[in-house]
């Protein structure tokens, strides 16, 4: 399926000044990334809830830069794996290697032993590698040889997919997509944002290496000094846990997910995991907006990212040109 990113309809500007944690991260990221505040918010929601995030967007819209900036802002260990067709599970998980000096097997940990793993173009790897990663995402531990190893806490996978160039890719099946708490589709920057990107690029200087030099990139501009640390993230996560969810809000979420199971254009409705994701993500969003309780705005803002990848339209609906986003919007409108 080839689709071009369209401006998301659920872009709701985050409230500035309401949550110090969010403000610090946003400020840090904004030094290198122009706009994309909703994406930064989604990354923070994933971090605060321990969910995983799938980002979709065409190349060159700062997917990697955003994730790396967030990792630097909170002093998280960051790894990036470019998924390719010949990647093996051991390339991600690690393996036991024979130490020739001692004659014993030594554990070689793969890039998955990190806080924030960026799985770039996850759909280019074989299903075997995808399932190895998704299993680790679910259980938060990996088995190497005879032993099982806990992954660091926090552990978050942010995977990216390119919605174009689908040849030679292995599309993630619905069951595996369900493991991702949120799937967010990038939108192109506005003309003003794009102009600012160019302005900043023009200000980048050369990076000297000995007698040679290379032009600096946006990655070189990421500030090294972290403003936040793991204990700050843990405190924020605790605060999210204490965000109140009312019975009325729960009713809204459950009713909405139930609607996806009975709509004539939807072949596969959302699983109960969708309700869980919706409620947990709403709590994190409420925290990021400085509230200690969730409100319908949280639910409406996140519904698209939580629901879209968990449902499948019927062939009849697809044949007449209906799109999943249209159906979700219709369902949301039916609530109000």
């Amino acid at each position: 399926m080839t689709s071009h990113p369209t401006p998301s309809l659920s872009l709701v500007a985050p409230t500035v000044g309401a949550c110090p944690f969010a403000d610090i991260v946003r400020t840090h990221v904004a030094r290198t990334v122009v706009g994309q505040q909703v994406v930064v918010e989604r990354v923070m929601i994933a971090l605060l809830t321990g969910g995983h995030l799938l980002l979709e967007g065409v190349p060159g819209i700062a997917k990697t830069l955003i994730v790396q900036s967030v990792a630097k802002a909170i002093d998280l260990k960051f790894s990036r794996v470019q998924f390719t067709i010949d990647l093996l599970p051991s390339d991600i998980l690690g393996s036991e290697v024979l130490d020739q000096k001692t004659g014993e097997f030594r554990l070689h940990r793969g890039p998955i032993f990190t806080n924030l793993l960026l799985a770039d173009e996850i759909n280019r790897a074989s299903p075997k590698v995808q399932s190895a990663l998704l299993e680790a995402m679910q259980e938060r531990k990996v088995s190497i040889g005879d032993s099982s190893h806990e992954l660091p806490a926090p552990f978050l996978v942010i995977a990216t997919q390119n919605p174009i160039e689908q040849s030679g890719t292995f599309e993630l099946p619905e069951a595996q997509l369900d493991r991702f708490m949120l799937r967010h589709r990038f939108s192109y920057p506005t003309p003003e944002e794009e102009t600012e990107v160019v302005r900043r690029s023009l200000k980048l200087k050369l990076k000297r290496q000995g007698d040679g030099a290379v032009p600096m990139t946006a990655f070189d501009a990421i500030e090294e000094g972290a403003r936040l640390h793991l204990k700050d993230l843990s405190s924020a996560m605790e605060a999210v846990q204490s965000v109140h969810v009312s019975e009325v809000f729960l009713r809204d979420c459950v009713d909405f997910v139930q609607l996806t199971r009975h709509h004539k254009d939807i072949e596969l409705g959302c699983s109960p995991r969708a309700v869980l994701a919706l409620v947990h993500a709403s709590r994190a969003r409420a925290y990021l907006h400085g509230r200690d309780y969730t409100i319908p705005e949280d639910f409406f803002a996140l519904a698209e990212d939580v629901i879209l990848h968990r449902m499948r339209l019927t062939y009849e609906a697809l044949a007449v040109g209906r799109k999943p986003l249209d159906v979700v919007t219709e369902l949301l409108r039916s609530l109000t």
């Binding site: 709701v12 009713r251 809204d252 319908p296 409406f300 919007t329 109000t336």
Partner: peptide, 28 residues
């Protein structure tokens, strides 16, 4: 109670002519 809240939002959304907007944007 949930119905009442959503209806009030719908009422104001209609009054402010936000019905063409995405519900999330309208509520915001």
């Amino acid at each position: 109670q949930a119905r009442l809240e959503l209806l009030v939002m719908a009422f104001w959304s209609e009054r402010r002519d936000f019905t063409s907007l995405n519900p999330a944007q309208a509520i915001s």
